[in-house]
Computed example of a mutant assay.
Amino acid sequence: MSLVRVAVIGIGNMGAAHARTLVAGEVPGAELVAVCDVRQEMESWVSSNLPASVTYWQDAEQMMSSGTIDAVIIATPHYDHPEKAIQAFRDGLHVMIEKPAGVYTKQVRKMNEAAAASGKVFSMMYNQRTNPLYIKLRDLIASGELGEIRRTNWIITNWYRSQSYYDSGGWRATWAGEGGGVLINQDPHQLDLWQWTIGMMPVRMRAFCSFGKYRNIEVEDDVTAYVEYENGATGVFVTTTGEAPGTNRFEVNGDRGKIVIEDGQLTFWRLREPEPEFNQRFTGGFGQPECWKCEVPISGVETGHPGLIRNWIDAILNGTPLIAPGEEGIHGLTLSNAMLLSTWTDNWVDLPIDEDLFYEHLQQRIASSNTKKDKAGSSSQPADLSQTFK
């Protein structure tokens, strides 16, 4: 194969953007040959905005089994990501899915199993993994520069959303439409980076989610979670869509210092000697280890969505290692599922979570939800990119 024939399923904000990226020739080795959306009116959008060579389909299953494509980018509503991916793998297609991996881990686990059985290239649209700041943080931790992790703390509250935002679509902020609130809609990138940069998942969690605290919605819009790791380290994750001005600060403490990412900057306060060694030899009263504020060189440019699509195509054509393997999407989703389950049961939750129990609680909320999820394959977001919402 020298050219990958790509189709996009779901022509909403992100699907339309990915289609335009491919048409613009930003991904060598890939050609956009088809798009799919269940809404018939999208056919006119396709004919007006994409080359005549791009075929419009209304039925995703027919398109995927047609033999006219090699790979799909899935940008449908959250619930449909695993379903569409599983069908694509069955049809022998390579797959890239938008975040989140799905709504509940039980569904995503089946998707991962289908991916493994297919032997096809499976990637997640975790574009923040191309951010040089988080790449450097991951490198500093993996190389031992920060020592053993003791504490993580992420305050991500700059997701302000007004009531008019939620009122812009009946599917928004509903259990049946989106499957959650700030955790499933705004935070998937941070939840992924939280575990990806430090290289470990918590072993248990206690979380407190508020539902409709600041807005007239049925899902979570304010969350505070406390986690514990196997090595004894602890962590806190705080997020909301109801505060202004917001904060985005990720702090990681180790026994060799502290790293903070905030306002687009990485700062490393490095101890001259590990804290345990200082503590063992120190005999004074109020001393502490000598600390240096280090300027860490950050190289590279964030390539975002186009960069991840290029990486996926390179993996298909040349075997290039994936930046964001699709199978890893379950990790961040596990964190958000655990936060909700801890709140619903008013108790600690061990990881991995009880997937059947989470599914049971979720179904109860879907049954009483104010909306039913959009039909599989629809975009659920306006195609007008000037109205982009995340």
Rank of each mutant, 00 (worst) to 15 (best):
N13R: 07
G15F: 08
G15I: 08
A17F: 13
R20L: 11
G29F: 00
G29R: 01
M42K: 14
M42I: 15
E43W: 06
S44L: 15
W45V: 09
S48R: 08
S48D: 13
V54L: 12
V54F: 10
M63I: 02
M63T: 00
M63D: 07
I69R: 02
V72M: 09
A75R: 00
P77N: 12
H78G: 14
H81G: 07
A85P: 08
Q87N: 10
D91P: 07
H94R: 00
V95W: 02
A101N: 07
G102L: 15
Q107W: 11
A114R: 08
V121S: 01
M124E: 09
M125Q: 06
N127G: 00
I135M: 14
R138V: 13
S143T: 15
E148S: 13
N153W: 14
I156H: 14
W159H: 13
R161I: 02
S162A: 09
S164Y: 09
D167C: 02
D167K: 11
D167P: 01
R172G: 05
G177S: 02
G179H: 06
V182L: 03
L183E: 04
L183W: 04
Q186G: 04
D187C: 11
P188C: 04
H189Q: 15
W194L: 03
I198D: 02
M201W: 02
Y214R: 04
Y214W: 08
N216S: 08
I217N: 06
V219D: 07
A225P: 03
A225T: 02
G232M: 08
A233M: 01
T234C: 09
G235L: 07
T239S: 15
T240V: 02
T247D: 11
N248I: 12
F250D: 05
E251W: 04
D255N: 15
I259F: 04
G264D: 08
G264F: 01
E277G: 13
N279R: 12
Q280G: 15
F282I: 09
G284C: 05
F286T: 13
F286G: 11
P289Y: 05
C294H: 01
E295W: 03
E302Y: 07
G307P: 00
L308A: 01
I309L: 09
N311L: 09
I313H: 05
L322A: 10
G326K: 05
H331F: 04
G332L: 03
L340D: 09
L341V: 05
L341S: 00
T343E: 05
W344Y: 12
L351R: 04
P352Q: 10
I353M: 07
Q363K: 10
Q364E: 11
R365C: 03
S368F: 03
S369A: 03
N370S: 14
G377F: 01
G377S: 12
S378M: 12
S379N: 09
A383F: 13
K390I: 10
